[in-house]
Amino acid sequence: MVGIITYGVYIPKYRIKVEEIARVWGANAADIAGGLGVYSKSVPDLDEDTATIAVEAARHALKRREINPADIGAVYVGSESHPYAVKPTACTVGEAIGATPYMTAADYEFACKAGTAAIQTCMGLVKSQMITYGVAIGSDVAQGAPSDALEYTAAAGGAAFVIGRDDPVARINHTCSFTTDTPDFWRREGQDYPRHGGRFTGDPGYFKHIQGSVRLIFEQTGKNPKDYDYAVFHQPNAKFPQRVAKILGFTAEQIKPGLVVPRLGNTYSGSSMIGLAATLDIAKAGDRIFVASFGSGAGSDAFDIEVTDAIESGAFRRDAAPSVEKLLASPKWVDYATYARHKGKIVMQK
């Protein structure tokens, strides 16, 4: 049975409050924070990018479980902020975790769901016995134009999942996807920041696609929301996942452990994967976890996951790498000027 062998997360230590961003643009902070349900977001350091975050997340995963890096046959990194337009982030990650040279690698882009698409690819390669382990990563230093609505949530962080067959800490019983050509959010080649369709990203984008993948997986598996202990939905803000959970029949308690967006912001490709990691951080053997990602453009991947005894065994050391809760604790707060410097938003003399 294919599943998650180990996982790891990395979140930069810097944070900015939504009210600080609102102050600069003369917006009503209480309205924005209340409307989004987001109060702060993570900010990368001057020397952090999608590749460094992906490497740290992958190294955290490998600290939790001893696997021979040479047995890693595939590395896929999903992101919409790869440091190079041409040259794979996945090669840098593969080299940094000692998995090169006998592996396949590629970078994925599918807005906020590129990381879960990487999980599905690794599942296929493992299931067909082409590889022993595959590393699927969602990592982003998310872009949001100054004063745009996205700027209040676009955050930095990533999660890495090692997918394999033998003794997984969580079995992935089933996955399926729902995909259409929907221009709800995009970034053209050479542009610094993405654009979006405002409210259009909601109903025809997020809600249609998540409901599409969730209804499909329930139809294929015969399960319903009551069969799960926890659920994780893509979290561009706190409102959307809460609303879609309610529509589909999940409770507030089921989504609570994985709802990290109020303190973290939207880490784009890392979003639902960090939510899943936060849920695995507190999960016990036998727990069932439901995950549905969403990527603009648009599509959603749904997963039926079941935690195994291995999560509590000696072979898996959950404490050997920081939990999501630990990574979110004791942040270093920055003001807008420092945030702008860290994000390269200040135009320098060349």
Binding site: D45, D47, E48, D49, A51, T52, V55, E56, R59, P83, Y84, T92, A96, K350
Partner: peptide, 20 residues
């Protein structure tokens, strides 16, 4: 040790990653 960006060869050149 942590994995970080050390330097870059200008706006279009290679990015030098390494250990800090």
């Amino acid at each position: 040790p942590v994995f970080r960006r050390i330097a870059a060869d200008g706006e279009s050149g290679v990015i030098h990653y390494g250990t800090k």
